[in-house]
């Protein structure tokens, strides 16, 4: 006779036992998968740490440039948008430049450009070396002057005028004779100015400036009436406006 209750219990035990191998296999597979997953995750994490550390240790070329030559216009935060606005600073610069009337040479350091173009760097280096050698030969004060600015001064000396007179005697160019007349007039040598203006008029009768310098020199020499007569004749001949203006000024007494 069967004890069905006991038999069912035994059957349940058998079923549980029969599922144990599958359960063990499934669990071990699950554990293996989890171990592999975590191991892989750790590996990835460690690799990213290594990468970041490498990046940190690497010198940032952009950052270095910024350190050498800080520029608020170049430095831009990552998250902020760059908005370009028109600047009128260049106008001020131009005005300053025109007020100074003297060209200035500034030493400009461009490390980033020199990094990109090594050939130019060698050229610049050679030039720089030559300049530095020359500077070393000069006294200390002059060195400082060169480092700051180079002043170019124009000197209207009598020697210069003689040089031009020599050249004029060689080629008989009215432009040179007019230039000499103007220089003599500026220097206050109205007699020589009159002479060279007369010579220019004899070479070319149609040069306004020559006739004006000629008449101005006459006025300065005290021949105001003669100057007005000459201007009158010249105006009739050439209808020059500058001559007309000068005649009015002489007549009115503005030009003495």
């Amino acid at each position: 006779m069967f004890n069905t209750t006991e038999l069912e219990k035994q059957w349940l035990q058998y079923k549980i036992k029969s599922y144990i191998p599958y359960l063990i296999i499934s669990l071990s597979l699950l554990i293996i998968i989890l171990i592999v997953y975590f191991f892989k995750f750790d590996m990835e994490k460690s690799s990213t740490n290594i990468q970041t550390s490498i990046i940190k240790s690497k010198p940032n070329p952009k950052k270095e440039i910024v350190q050498i030559k800080p520029s608020p216009h170049i430095l831009v935060e990552d998250n902020k948008k760059v908005q370009l606005l028109p600047s009128l600073d260049f106008m001020k610069k131009m005005q300053n430049a025109s007020q100074l009337h003297r060209p200035t040479v500034k030493s400009i350091q461009r490390p980033h450009i020199s990094d990109i173009r090594p050939k130019e760097e060698t050229k610049h280096a050679k030039r720089k070396k030559i300049i530095q050698d020359n500077i070393e030969e000069l006294p200390q004060e002059s060195k400082k002057d060169i480092d700051k600015t180079i002043n170019i001064e124009r000197k209207n000396t009598q020697k210069d005028i003689y040089d031009i007179i020599k050249r004029f005697k060689k080629n008989n160019n009215p432009v040179l004779s007019l230039f000499i007349a103007k220089k003599y007039y500026e220097l206050g040598n109205y007699k020589q100015a009159y002479n060279y203006a007369l010579i220019t008029n004899e070479i070319n009768k149609d040069i306004d400036d020559s006739w004006i310098i000629f008449t101005k020199s006459l006025v300065k020499l005290g021949n105001k009436d003669k100057a007005l007569d000459i201007l009158k004749q010249y105006i009739e001949h050439s209808h020059s406006n500058s001559a007309k203006i000068l005649r009015k000024e002489i007549q009115s007494g503005k030009f003495k």
Partner: peptide, 16 residues
């Protein structure tokens, strides 16, 4: 199948 397995347990074909 349960009855087959129970019979097998009873006859000794399955050793619990």
């Amino acid at each position: 199948i349960k009855m087959i397995e129970m019979s097998a347990i009873h006859t000794g074909l399955i050793n619990v």
